[in-house]
Lab assay of single mutants.
Amino acid sequence: MLDDRARMEAAKKEKVEQILAEFQLQEEDLKKVMRRMQKEMDRGLRLETHEEASVKMLPTYVRSTPEGSEVGDFLSLDLGGTNFRVMLVKVGEGEEGQWSVKTKHQMYSIPEDAMTGTAEMLFDYISECISDFLDKHQMKHKKLPLGFTFSFPVRHEDIDKGILLNWTKGFKASGAEGNNVVGLLRDAIKRRGDFEMDVVAMVNDTVATMISCYYEDHQCEVGMIVGTGCNACYMEEMQNVELVEGDEGRMCVNTEWGAFGDSGELDEFLLEYDRLVDESSANPGQQLYEKLIGGKYMGELVRLVLLRLVDENLLFHGEASEQLRTRGAFETRFVSQVESDTGDRKQIYNILSTLGLRPSTTDCDIVRRACESVSTRAAHMCSAGLAGVINRMRESRSEDVMRITVGVDGSVYKLHPSFKERFHASVRRLTPSCEITFIESEEGSGRGAALVSAVACKKACMLGQ
């Protein structure tokens, strides 16, 4: 009897593995994704193909990295998701002549009506938060230079001027797309009239992360975010950046690689679950690469896999709870928690219980395998993109072996128990001629924006502006 049951459990697990095998990517698959990513990057950089390229390769006008001589107080704003952060950054000489960066910050959550109302409502709310922060720190009387981390696709015309191309991540505030974001912020500050600010720089969160990590390690020339969304930036040779005049030196390019796949480059790798996630998203047909990796989508992918296993009578005796059938019910943090389970399955059992399920031991094991399959594919897909960037940098610099540091931020990278190990191992397999160091950014977005502002202020002083 026991043997029969054991055989049935083994057969069930084997069927589960057959279904989950769809998520496995072979090294040849990853090399294919990497080569296609490089081709799209090239198209994004070139003037004649930029418009139709899915990977936009947006110039950021960040050319210099901090040298350690900029000092002063800077205000930093960070808008990239449902939370908005205001930070005071003091850049100065530390002990023994070292450079020191001290920060104080406060988080504000953005109400739904500000995210989806008008641009005026959104930026009025942001300036209200700045006003509140300055009151708390008794700094209303000071006109501070301000660095703005704005983590949406922007076409820069200068370091302090950028046109919002399109909202992502659930934002829909009308009247912002096609307009200068810094102008919208300046107008809102003017409307309030109770404080003055000098907006000197606007950067993407990947750029802010790279600059913040450069402060720790001067070989950091790539910034990457794996959180709600997924994106990367890197220092490109100016001669390859056709959208900006000049051939000397390097400029940081914001790849906006989340949109890779929007022209069909990933079609052969998309599964039924991916198509369902895409169809029910706020932007169907867009940001397809990001939807395979980002935390906004990972939990939902797992939920759809679990429903398939229920329908195949391989999980929960073929019956799903009402909660499990509800879109968004299986949160991405559950994926991390399930994979963090120590082996007694308590954590998995508790999560499934909150979803109205009474799982068996085998159910718990199957749910864990589903989570591992989805998150491992995410790590491997992400590795193909980064390997594409790094191999490109090595080739354009004609280096036999390139040493490089990548600064990384984002909740999936930082909080998932195995993502970074799987990701690092896969990147290294795909970049055999590179020695890569990964560092995690601390308060990256805010500190990085302030350091970019410090560079901009120093330049302005040198130019006598």
Rank of each mutant, 00 (worst) to 15 (best):
S383G: 14
G258V: 15
A460R: 11
E237V: 04
F316V: 12
V222H: 00
F152G: 13
S360R: 02
L77V: 07
D124V: 04
E196H: 06
S445I: 12
E96M: 14
A10E: 14
V427N: 07
A10D: 14
F123S: 05
Q286T: 15
G410Y: 06
G147P: 00
T149Q: 08
E236S: 01
H137C: 06
E28G: 10
V389D: 00
T361F: 02
E157T: 15
K296I: 10
T326W: 09
S174C: 03
E221S: 08
E48T: 15
D160Y: 12
H380K: 14
V33L: 05
A10R: 15
E395A: 12
N240S: 03
K459W: 06
R358I: 03
K39A: 07
S441V: 08
M37V: 03
T65Q: 10
Y289E: 05
N254M: 08
T168K: 15
A387Q: 01
V401E: 09
G295D: 13
R303E: 02
V367Q: 00
G448V: 08
L306C: 10
V406G: 01
S100L: 09
R5Y: 11
N283G: 11
S418M: 07
R192L: 07
L146C: 14
V154F: 10
T255I: 15
K143S: 02
W257T: 02
I366T: 04
D365W: 07
I439F: 04
D205N: 03
S64D: 13
E40K: 02
D247W: 03
M462V: 10
Q323H: 05
F419H: 03
M87G: 08
D187A: 03
N83W: 07
M202C: 03
Q138P: 12
G246Y: 02
G97E: 11
L352T: 02
V200E: 00
R46G: 15
I211R: 00
G264R: 05
V55R: 02
L355A: 01
R36F: 08
T60E: 00
C213I: 13
L309K: 01
I436Q: 02
M202K: 02
E290R: 12
T82I: 04
S411N: 12
V91Q: 06
L134Y: 09
G318I: 02
S64R: 15
G68D: 07
S426L: 07
R36A: 02
G223N: 01
Y349R: 04
E242C: 07
S383A: 10
T65L: 09
D311L: 14
V207D: 01
K143R: 06
T168A: 09
T354R: 09
M238E: 03
S263F: 07
S174L: 04
E67F: 11
E248G: 03
S360C: 04
V427A: 06
K172Y: 03
D4Y: 02
E216K: 15
E51C: 15
M202S: 02
L307P: 00
G227N: 01
Q347M: 11
I163C: 13
G388R: 03
D365S: 05
E339K: 01
K15I: 13
C461E: 13
M235Q: 01
T255C: 13
C252H: 00
E52G: 05
V154L: 11
E312K: 15
K12E: 04
M37Q: 01
L415W: 05
R303Q: 07
G81H: 15
P284A: 11
P284L: 11
I19V: 08
S453Q: 15
L75P: 00
N180H: 10
G183T: 09
S445H: 12
C364G: 02
R377I: 00
E399A: 09
D3S: 08
A11T: 15
P111D: 03
D4N: 07
G183D: 06
V86R: 00
E272N: 08
K172M: 03
M37Y: 03
M235L: 08
G193M: 01
A282V: 13
R394S: 07
G44F: 00
E93T: 07
T361K: 03
K136S: 09
E442V: 05
R394V: 08
K39Q: 05
E256R: 08
N204L: 04
G92K: 10
E435M: 13
E236I: 00
H317R: 05
L276M: 06
E236P: 00
G299W: 03
L146W: 09
S109N: 10
L271V: 01
K459V: 12
S109D: 12
C220S: 09
L58C: 12
S360V: 08
G175P: 06
G264K: 11
A119D: 08
L386V: 11
I126G: 02
C434F: 10
L184S: 11
D409S: 12
P59H: 00
M41E: 03
E339G: 00
T431G: 04
D341Y: 02
L301C: 08
K190C: 14
E319I: 13
V203K: 00
M210C: 00
G97C: 07
R192M: 02
S340A: 02
H50I: 04
W167Q: 14
M8S: 14
V455A: 11
G92D: 07
K169A: 12
I390W: 01
R5M: 08
D278N: 15
L47G: 14
G175N: 05
Q239K: 05
H424P: 10
R325G: 10
L144T: 07
E96R: 09
M87R: 05
D4I: 06
A114P: 07
N254F: 02
E248L: 07
V412R: 11
A119G: 08
L47A: 09
E440V: 08
R275S: 06
S336C: 15
V91T: 05
C230R: 03
Y273R: 05
E112V: 07
L165F: 08
T60W: 00
L165I: 09
K104C: 11
V427W: 04
S426C: 10
